[in-house]
Amino acid sequence: MKSVLVDLTQLPLERTGVGIYAVNYVKRLQAQAGGMRLHFLVLDDDAELLREVAAIPNASAIVLKAKLFRRFLFRVLLEQVIIPALALVKGIGAVHSLHYSFPLLSFGRFKRIVTVCDMSFFLFPELHVPAKRVFFQYFIRRLPKVEGLLFISESTMNDFMRDFPLCAAERCVIPLGTELARLQAPADPRVVAELRKRFDIGRYILYVGTIEPRKNILGLVKAFEQVAPTHPDIKLVIAGKLGWDYDSLLQYIEASPLRDRIVLTGYVNETEKHALLKSADLFTYVSFYEGFGLPVLEGMAAGVPSITSNISSMPEVAGNGALQVNPNNTDEIAAAMRSLLDHPEARASLVERGHAQSRAFTWENTTAISLDFYARLLGQREAGTQPGQLRG
């Protein structure tokens, strides 16, 4: 039986987006991998992934030194030389890369599977730093040559196919999930109290995500400035690490007359994020573009009235469980905030719908579809009859 090598070396230690996807995928493999033989490339500074991989039956970890392979040139060497060599020596049937880049040469000896998280490098190239834009556009242009593509939403797959309509790779949508039981459970009151004290917050509107132009945080701040005068007890909490091109945003916040009511927490871990979500009055995620929009799903699952954008993948994720607004219209964002802050019955109804919507997205489903895709691509299972999952 052919095995699959999953490359986990692309993941930063501070988990966002693809990192959260990868960790939850690995966790679910512990119960769902069955007889599938799996190998994982893991860096030696990633204790969490090393621990989770060790608990997967029929799996082995190939551990590499982070001091070397977190450096760009060594990272390229690993992906383009070492991984193909490993695949050939170990007789691996497929290599799964989780974040755009992948081994360019397979010598026809192993299948290449790539997870495509979004198409922002093509749709919004101006919102990325030049080096990343050039690097990832190079690999995305070559994705039609791989054997299998996993997309985290129908929206992302449609965006890709508009740019690459002749792509013949097998394609599959793997909607992401969320940890429903954990997010719906009460937060640790000690963590809540510590965060309230650390950031001096009572009632607040919350954003969670990387601070970068695509997330439209400036639009969120401007909408908050409209709402704040009639809601003097509300603050805006922006939770996330600094990404790129954030100087103009920070300058705007510093000059804002509401500077004392806008809180920048920096990166928060999963426990802190859970506590912030459970204590928020509103959750807002009015991004200009998303490949999925995982924070929207987490907000709904946590029982927070949520506002998100009405474009790209976000309607696919939110359904009727969140208010949808035009992210380019600050007045519309502000009106949505007011409607929920001022009407408790609307908030309660939205929370109920959000809970129902979030239950449709589970990591178990993400994992099951991914494993089925592996098996189909390796010829170990006949294509099923479920519509819309496997495309070629």
Rank of each mutant, 00 (worst) to 15 (best):
E352H: 12
L77C: 04
G93C: 08
L149I: 05
F40G: 06
Q226H: 10
A55C: 07
P189I: 07
T16G: 15
V129Y: 10
R142M: 11
V23C: 01
P175E: 11
H274M: 06
I56N: 03
L150K: 05
S306H: 07
R133I: 00
V208W: 09
A356V: 13
P175D: 08
R391G: 00
L5E: 04
G17P: 06
E290N: 04
H99Y: 15
L11P: 02
K111M: 00
A185N: 13
S279F: 00
A346I: 00
E332C: 02
E14S: 10
S309Q: 02
R381S: 13
T210E: 14
A94G: 09
F199E: 11
V81A: 14
S120V: 14
T362P: 05
S153A: 11
E298T: 05
G303V: 07
F40Y: 14
L218S: 13
G266S: 01
V134A: 14
T156R: 08
P186C: 08
V208E: 06
L377W: 05
P315A: 05
G384P: 11
L68V: 01
F199L: 07
R109T: 09
T265Y: 12
V192D: 01
A131E: 11
M300N: 00
S60D: 11
Q137A: 04
K27Q: 14
V296W: 03
D372P: 03
A302M: 05
A61T: 04
F102A: 09
I56G: 09
I152C: 07
D7W: 08
G266M: 04
Y285G: 06
T230V: 10
L176Y: 01
I62Y: 12
R214W: 08
G240N: 04
P125A: 07
F283M: 12
T156L: 04
T362R: 02
T230G: 07
L277N: 12
M157Q: 15
Q184C: 02
L104Y: 02
P189D: 12
P327V: 09
P327H: 03
N328F: 12
E212V: 04
F292I: 10
H231F: 13
A301E: 08
